[in-house]
Every structure is written in C-alpha cells, then in structure tokens.
Design a binder for these strands. Sequence first.
RNA 1: GCGGGGUUAGCUCAGCGGUAGAGCGUCUGCUUUACACGCAGAGGGUCACUGGUUCGAAUCCGGUACCCCGCACCA
Length: 874
Amino acid sequence: MPEELSKRYEPATIEQRLYEFWEKGEFFTPLLDPERPKFSIVIPPPNITGRLHIGHALVNTLQDIIVRWKRMSGFNTLWLPGTDHAGIATQMIVDRELAKEGVSRFDLGREKFVERVWEWKESYGHQIIDQLKRLGASADWTRLRFTLDEGLARAVRTAFVKLHDDGLIYRGIAMVNWCPHCRTAISDVEVEYEERVSKLYYIDYPVADSARVLTIATTRPETMLGDTALAVHPDDERYKDVIGREAILPIANRRIPIVADPIFVDREFGTGVVKVTPAHDKNDYEAGKRNDLPQLQVIDEGGRMTEAAGVFAGLDRFEARTKVVAMLRDSGALHDVKDYNHSIGIHGKCETVIEPMISRQWFVKIEPLARPAIDAVRDGTIRILPQSWEATYFNWMENIHDWTISRQLWWGHRIPAFYCANGHVTVATDAPAACPQCGSTEVTQETDVLDTWFSSGLWPFSTMGWPDDTQDLHIFYPTDVLITGFDILFFWVARMIMFGLRFTGKAPFSQVFLNGLVRDEFGQKMSKTKGNVIDPIDVIDEFGADAVRFTLAIFASGRDIPLARSRMQGYAAFANKIWNASRFAMMHIDTTLGSVKAIDRDSMKSIERWILSRLNETTRTVNRALSDYRFDEASNAIYQFFWHEFCDWYIEMVKPVLLGRHGSEADQQRAKRVLLEVLDRSLRLLHPFMPFITEEIWQKLGGVEPSIMVAPYPVVEETLEDAEAERMVRAVQAMITSVRNARAERGFTSKDRFKLYVRGDGRDAAFFDDYAYLLIDLARLTEVIVNAEPPAGAHHDVVEGFDIAIEFPEKVVTKEQQDRTERELEKSRKELESLDAKLLNEQFVRNAPPAIVQGAQARQAELRARIEKLMRNQ
RNA sequence: GCGGGGUUAGCUCAGCGGUAGAGCGUCUGCUUUACACGCAGAGGGUCACUGGUUCGAAUCCGGUACCCCGCACCA
C-alpha cells in the first residue's frame, strides 16, 4: 500500500531532502566502463563571482533535462561541472573589497593579492554551485573542476607551449583595445559597441607660411595633441597644392606634415582632410606606419594625459577634452560643433570607454586554427542548432583577427614565458633553471596572465585530464552536445572548436544547441535599472524548482524567452495537479510497482487501451522532440497529456469502476493496475523536466529501482497503439461535450438530467451500450438509448460521425441557443460549400493525394448530416 | 554596408503546403467525495501588406512596410 501524500504540494518540504538523497546515492556519477554506450556533456562554467541568474537557470535546466533523459535511456552519462576563474571580474570584486579596507592591490603586491583572491574563492566561489543544486542539476560533483586548478593550469601551459612551438603564438607591439579602468588589453570580442549622442568638433589647422586653413572634424579633440600629420586624398583637387607642406597644430603650435593617403582618406566624407594620431586610433596607426609618421602618446594606461600633452598633462582624457575644446574656442580655432551619433567601444565588464593603445602583447595567430574549425561545421562534423547560427559562425570565423591573449592582470594563468637578464625569452611549461641561450640564472616569468577564455577554450578536455592520457578522456571525450547561450558563440564555442581540433584532433562535441536570451514578459531585456529581473532562487522559493524548470523548458525552442511570473504560477499549478492526481490514484492503488505483474493486454477495455495508446503517442513525441532539442514541444506534449487527457478524461472515466459503482471486481482490479501503469509511465516521462515531484511520488509507488532517475525512460511500444479505441473514446468525449454545451446553452444546470439517444451500427452500438454508464456519469444523463427514435423536439447533433439526440423536458430554446445554432449552421454551410466546390474541381480530385480526397468526402458527408440535424433544432 | 530573426486571438508564443492552435487574461455556470493552484462552458483571428507558384498557401518564392539582434564602418 503506497504511503499517503499531503493534500497540497509543497516543494520546499521535499526538494532539499531529495537532492541530498541523489547525491548520497551517487546517481550523478557514471561508471568507468568503456563498453557501455556513453553520453557526456560539459557545463559552461559559470564565473565564481556569479550569483545564479535566470540565464544560468535556463542553460542548466536544459542540460539537466537532456542529461536525465539520456541517463534514464540507458546511457552511461557524465555531466561534468565546474567554474571559471573569470580574470577581470574576480579581480574587480576583490579590488572593491580591498578598497573598502582602504588599500589597493598595489599596496599588497601581486603574491599577497592572489592569495587574497583564493581566500575569496574559498568563501564565496561555491555559491553558484549550491544554487545549481537547488535547481536540481544532476552534474557529477565528484568531478568538479575550476579553470585555475593545478590540472587545468598544466593543460593551459601545455597548450600555450604547443602553440608557441608551432609558431602560432607570437609577442609583438600592436594597437590593441585598452581598458583604462582595468588597465589591461582586451580582445576584439570583449569590446561592445554602443550608440551614443556626442559632438563632432570642426577644428581649423592653419597651413604654415600661408593664409590657408584646413578644417578637420573629430569626435575626440583631446587626441589632437598627439597629431603627427594631416592627411588628404592624393587626387583631391581641393588639396593638391598643400600636399608636402606643413600645418600648424593649434594649441601645441607644432608643425606637422600634410601627407597624401588614398587608403585612409575618403574624399566624400567630411571636409576631406583628416588629422592623423598614430598613437590613439587604429586607422591612424596604420596610416602612420604607411607614411612613416612618429607616434606621440598623449594618453596613458590609466586614461590620463601624458607629459606630451603639455598643459593638459595629468588630466583625465574626458576632462582634457572639455579643456581642449574651451581653449580652441578661445583661440578661434574651433570652427564648428555639431551633434553627432556614433557608436563607441565600451569594455563590457566595467562600462569604460575603450582607448586604442599601442603596446606589447601576446597574440594567437588565428587563421590556421580557424580554417579547420570552419570546415568542421561546414562538413557537418559539428552541427549548430538552431541552424541559422551557422551563418553567423562562418561570418565571424572567416573575418577573424589575431587574438590578443595577454592581460595585464594578476588573477589568472601567468603566461609561461621566461626572460633572462640578457633579454632572451624561453617559452616552456616549467621555469628553466637557467636561460637555455646564455645560461643566465636570473630568470623571471612574464607578468601578464592569459585571457580567461584561453583556459575555457580547453574546457572539454582539460577537465578530463588532458594532456595526460586518462580514462575519462578515453570514455567521455569527445562530448556529445554543448548547450549554451548564443552570446558566447565567439568567446567560447568557437575557441573550443579551434582548440579541440588542434590539441585532440577531434571536434570537442558533435552538436551545439544555442538557447536564446531570457527576457521579461514583454520581450524587454532584464536589467536591474528596469527592475524587471527575475531571480531564479526567489522563484524557486516561491513556486518550486520543478515549476521554474518547466516554465523555462516549455519556452525553449532556441529563440528568446519571454518569461513571466504568471507562467511559473501556471506550472506550479501543474505540479499541484500532478500531486493531486497521484494522491487520488494512491487512494485506490493497493499494490507496488515492484510486486505487480505485466498487464494482461487482451483483457483491457477500450478506455484503457485508449489511455495507453495516447500515452504511447505522447512518449513518441517527447522522445523525438528531445532528440531535436525541442524542449518546448516535449514539455508541452506531456503537459497536454497529463492534464487534459489523463486527469480531465481518464481519471473521470475510471471513477465509476474504481469507486465500485460499475463493473466487476476484476474490472476494478484491472482499472487499478492500469492507473498505476499510466501514472508510473507518466512520472518517468516527466522526470527530466520535473525531477523533484516525480521522484517524491514515484518512490511511494514502490519501484524496484532506488530512484526514478535510474528507472528506464519510456519508449514507444507499437503494441500499445490502438486507433480503434481512440476513435470510439473520441466519439464518447464528443458526445459528452455536445450534451454539456446544449445543457449550458439552454440554461440548465448540471443537476438537470436528460435522456440521450445515440445511433450506431453493430459493433459501435454494442460499444455505446457498454459505455452507457460512462455517458450517464460524465454527461449527467438519466439514460442512454441506443438506436431508438428520439421524440419530436429533441435536440439533435452529429459528432464524430454519430447521430445523437437529447431529450430536454420541453423545447426551451433560448435566443442564445438559436443564435448559436444559426452560427454553427452558417459555419458548416460555408465549409460544405467550399468542400463541394473543391470536390467538383477535377484538378483537385486528380492531383491531391487520395487520403486528402477521401478525407474531404467523409467530411462532406458529415457536414451534410450535421446541417440536416442542426436545422431540426431551429 | 553585410548577415540573421520577427510581424498568427487582448498579451506571450507554437504551427511552416491539405478543415486556424496553446498558455495566460476576459466572460458565464459549478463547494461534482484528487485538486478552487480546481471543474464545465463561452467569446475572441480577412495568420503585416502585395504579387507569384500550386488543384490547394499562415505555411513555398519575389517585393514593400515596420520591429529586433549580430558584425563591419563611423574624420
């Protein structure tokens, strides 16, 4: 006898207990058995600084659904979890902590500061892991990895040295994106562009020894202090005469050359004269190199003006802008100022305006890595879903630039390059005791660290022990699918593909599913300033983890997800429905799953065949949808089945037998058995989506397995399909609905009972006789009379091809009823009319598939009958 | 400028060649012994516009309008 359930489902009372049960039971840890079919997936490692946000909740719910589904489907399943050290983000947080104590990291020094960050990590770094557990994530925590662990650090050093030895890593001086706030270089993908309203300043530059004045336009007037030339187009008639002469730089009163550059200058744009600041703009830098111009740095690494900026030295670059403009205005050199909209580069992590800066950095020569990565997607070795992302991937990969991998930070993987006192550079996984070139023992390591994404690019195999030859790599690498947000396609996915192919010779995964962005219910981006942020932990507390997961899943088709609390409330109601349906079932089931025998299928009645047939169809849909990552379709199919077929119809249909109002003892026993069967299969089908509630209920059903999460996932069984049972039950449902409609329209209540007349041939007639009790019960009738002439004035209808008539006490036809009948008639007539035309059209009859034509004919016959009956109701 | 996506019921979306669907919201009944986080029912759509292909188009192709999102450019 199963235990009883409480009247209302209270998620908070079971979630923690069940999660501990799973963890203790080691259900998340796969076997080290190379013979068994495996399924593996690695988590997109969340930053240790992070708190779980709704995007994490989504991506991890989707992974958990797939992982639980595969595990139940018999795969030796590994979901490998871990966290990312997140260089800049983490350093920023600890910096802020230090600031509160009134010290900076420079006061501490590098070593102490890094120690401090590790301490921070020990205290707070696991928070996000705990939150993932609240969500129900069935990741193998015994394999928890961190991108800065010793194992992964060795992988990083090995990868770096290999790339360097292959000539794919170089160190050099170049114009990079510089963040003056974080005081580090960042890569191209880390720069975000924002449309800003700003000003375009027109400045007059007098031509030396002449009365001519050249006007240039700039959005960044402070950089003029670093101008080392003006440039015009060589073929521009307006300026031919000034090429080779000099201009006087206002304020600084420096003479600068006027050069001609056909690549740099667009004659059509602005005045056709451009100032050249080689040290502070990418294009100017290139132009400077072409024209052999000096680079004059006027802004420093902290975004302040240098000594070279003269009187502005020491000022912040934006203060300097204001002052420069004022001074230009005073001197009359400011020609004009216009409003101007343009996008500017921002460092996404700290919102600081990027300053292009010339500096010495480490780079990855990317083209040789990108080519095979492009091929892998093109030839289908890796499939990206939704497929439209492939175009974006190709577009980016084909125009990719070398990757700036060095960061001027302290928290991260220190670059394994070593400098000796004589300036020789050695790149090696371990520090050399002496310089291999000159023998100097004064060896110091490069102070720069690597871009965080360098280490996460190795994630699928570094977490499994690479570069060693480990069992995990043998069994679980390559992984099967990567599930992540589209926003890190370039940052992470592309780099993993490149590194995976390079270092392991294999694509790190065969499929990539990119999920959309979680937005608010009106499609707006969630943001703290808008106040529309949904905190997953809050909603788990409020609605339960299962409801939150289900809500995320039912929206997840690869597009953006408009998330509303009302939806979560709706799926919390679904959880409650599952709970109560199970509670009802358990009041009657008196056996356990472990002790029952298989159902004798030959003895089953039509409604039993029907519900199992419907469940079988649902099973087919769910399995197929999950294999296509159509989480929305899969979850919706179960929802519809469980609530609207199992609860709304089947449970109501078995009540007469279950409660002993109808049928034999054997009928009741069989009904109980089928109820148990449907509940068991439904719970297993639902488990990947709603792990907690299904576990709690399923355990009470007394299964053989210790947990539903290791019970087999339902698969399609052809023998459960029963089209005939579906046809007849559909007819019964339609009759019941028709009676309910007519009753409501005529203003009767459910207490008023009537006689129902039904027509059917041989076998069907016998069926309606058998199920008269059901019609009586659910349609609240006094009697069902098969194949008799209904009295005059009865209400007629045709449903699913069967004639029915309801005998109402008297012909109380309301205006409402008449209108409705009229509308119904009108609709049917219209449809019939178009069908008639269709069937008279020879081309339709000749060209359309026979099944369609037959369907049209059947529908035509039914409509004719229906119209005839409806007319009798008028 | 290049690329991707969208426009279907009041709202949010699914459907992507063969009779317009779901959830939420609205309205009307109902304390029917699992559930009022419930049950039964109702109303609500010329599927953005416009050509074409087809026996047949929300669905395929072309164009127009508007809206998102990448990337590039931005003196």
